[in-house]
Nucleic acid binder design. Structure first.
Lengths: 151, 151
DNA sequence: TATTGTTATACTCTATAACTATA
DNA sequence: TATAGTTATAGAGTATAACAATA
């Protein structure tokens, strides 16, 4: 038996922290007329033209919900659907110039929001937290099938 | 501008970690015939007989959803509803003997699951992570109205 | 009149099934 | 036959509104 120390379970602390982070980032993005999910999708699409299913698997969405998510970005002119020449069944989601500008601005907004929330930890604390979470995710936590929306 | 270092945003790491934690703990509790939410409610009720609204505010549920949540625990004989003598509008949720036994077992299951997931961090890493998250939650993160289900 | 608990209802989100067009 | 995308539909989960009992 490992000497588990006192205090609330870490899972509860993680849940509260994550929830508060998502709420703060979501509010900041809402002021830009964006959604956290839409931003994540935009980021994923910016990695290069990819099929909707590939994006869906990446973000942890269903292919059916991905349709509406892409529809939304298309309606705002941030991405375009293009038929892939090699396989005309797949629709490559490509980021437009406007989309990239919005994405850059949202990146800054998200980074600023996170920086403010992480301020009390100091540079060293932030690095430690990042390192610990990465170790956690590369351990048993990442081993289990960790698909899921997380959003 | 603070020197924000490289890597994925910490919010994303927190979200993935929290999601994986909840999934693992949820699976472990499911093997005991329990739900994460039901366990949290049972834990809150074990703090002493309290009104449903008080419990709802604590867990971050709506009072209307709390009704069904308590109904579920009552159906399993883990808690009882008793009218408060002082104010007969409120129903005090009290944990039964069976409820307390189930709660103790679930506490052990949750602790064991978390311990396994946190194993790679070592005792020192676990303490560091706990400390960092507590500092985070006592800072700006906890300052904002942080109500919400988190479950 | 205000508040606790409850019910009924509507709304949001997501997944399942069925369809199309390609392969 | 199998796959990418789409649509329609059903389900879970949640919140809003209205009601009962009590203060």
């Amino acid at each position: 038996m490992s000497a588990e120390c006192s205090g609330p379970p870490i899972g509860a602390l993680l849940a509260r922290s994550s929830h508060a982070f998502n709420a703060a980032v979501g509010e900041a993005l809402a002021r830009e007329g964006m959604t956290l999910r839409a931003f994540l999708l935009l980021e994923a699409a910016a990695g290069g033209p990819r099929s909707q299913q590939s994006l869906a698997a990446d973000i942890g969405l269903d292919k059916t919900t991905m349709v509406a998510a892409v529809d939304d970005l298309v309606a705002h002119g941030l991405v375009e659907r293009r038929s892939a020449p090699a396989d005309r069944r797949v629709r490559l989601v490509t980021v437009t110039g406007d989309g990239d500008r919005v994405r850059q601005r949202c990146r800054e907004v998200v980074a600023a929001t996170e920086a403010e929330l992480l301020d009390e930890l100091g540079a060293q604390g932030r690095a430690e937290l990042r390192g610990l979470l990465l170790r956690l995710l590369h351990g048993r936590l990442g081993a289990s099938g960790r698909s899921g929306s997380c959003v």
